[in-house]
Design a protein around this nucleic acid. Sequence first.
RNA 1: GGGAUUAUGGUGUAACGGUUAGCACAGCACUCUGUGGAAGUGCGGGCGAGAGUUCAAUUCUCUCUAAUCCCC
Length: 399
Amino acid sequence: MFKILKKDKSTNARTGILITPHGKILTPAYTIVATHAEIKCLKPQDIAKTNTQVVISNTYHLWNFVPKQLPIYNFKFTNKNKKTFLLNKLGSNMPTMTDSGGFQVFSLGFGKENKVGKILKNGANLRMYANQQIKRQQIKITDKGVFFNIDGQRRFLNPEISMKLQEKLGADIIFAFDECTSPLDDFKYNKKALERTHRWAKKCLSLMANRQSQDKQQMLFGIVQGGRFKSLRVKSAKFIGSLPFDGFGIGGSFGQNEMLKTLKIVIPHLPEEKPRHLLGIGKIRDVFNAVENGVDSFDCVIPTREARHGRIYTRHGHYNISKNRNKNISLEKGCKCPACKLNISRSKLNALFKADLPRAQRFATLHNVWFFNNLMKNIRASIDRGSFKTFKKKFLSGI
RNA sequence: GGGAUUAUGGUGUAACGGUUAGCACAGCACUCUGUGGAAGUGCGGGCGAGAGUUCAAUUCUCUCUAAUCCCC
């Protein structure tokens, strides 16, 4: 269940509360990525210390770990000490999401084969790739589903299998199985892929409808696609938005500097009263822009991945720990994160990155995850007191 | 004192009588957006010294120097 608590007057930002069987999520919320049902480098008992509200895991990556005989999780048992497969693995009791595996259609196949990210980089443009032969050899996409052939491992994923797996995993919020296209794909391909994604969306919905008569608590989010094409984005938002999903994901790839434009044309077509999740986005500037346009949650690997690579986030921007070898000062002045509470200084953490990498990465991850969660808390507070725009301007000018 | 072996960037190493001496780690810079990511890309930096053979020597020979080991 989702309830909007406060709407910002001058923007589309809003605060809300998303109630799940495993707890509530105050929105806008940052969803921390736990692909394999663990936040990399963190122990289960660390998670609570980071004020993480919700975590997202991945159906494709957990596939191997899901026992064949595992029954579909029944949320009626939630409060009787029975934990979902996901929560057992995570070792922590909290709201969870699972991605359907749709993104792996892009990242494992196209993205890897063509060395392209889902967002075209600055300086990169379509002309750069104009003469490049687009490869799709490791995955085959048909209307029936997607064949993966990754390093000799053959797999097949379709709406039925994705839904079944996600039901077994037992996340509170699950996503429809979609096809994430590449920023290099043309209009024609995107149109075809979009129609397929829309058919799959209806399929996922009907599969879940049967089950939800017994247990209505696992929420299903549909995903808006359409690539870089305005007309397709609008079409998708209208179509997906008209279906009885519990919430909506905005996914796919974006051209350079196009994400904000995409949000502005997509969100007005989504039902106001339902939650919106921006998939895979989470740089600080993007967070503010997304919230400003009415996004309630997003997830991104940036806080965790970059922590492992030594990048530390602060409200004055980010820095690399390796450039702070002689600075015997805190990671961030006045920071109340679990690492800073232990007086981990910059020089100390830099030394740890050489002497004991896993421990260093744990502290860096603790800091960054806490930082992003705290940022969201401050954003929520600013919306509640009607000063989101001021807060955004002030924060962004400081980084 | 006698003998043996070795000598290649900051460190550990590879190859070779002939274009630009390869790799790993460390260093520096940059990158990271539904995590194949303790990752990736780029940059800087080297043939112990001297002589000889040769069209050509980091490579072969000799001397020196240094290190390691063995013998007395």
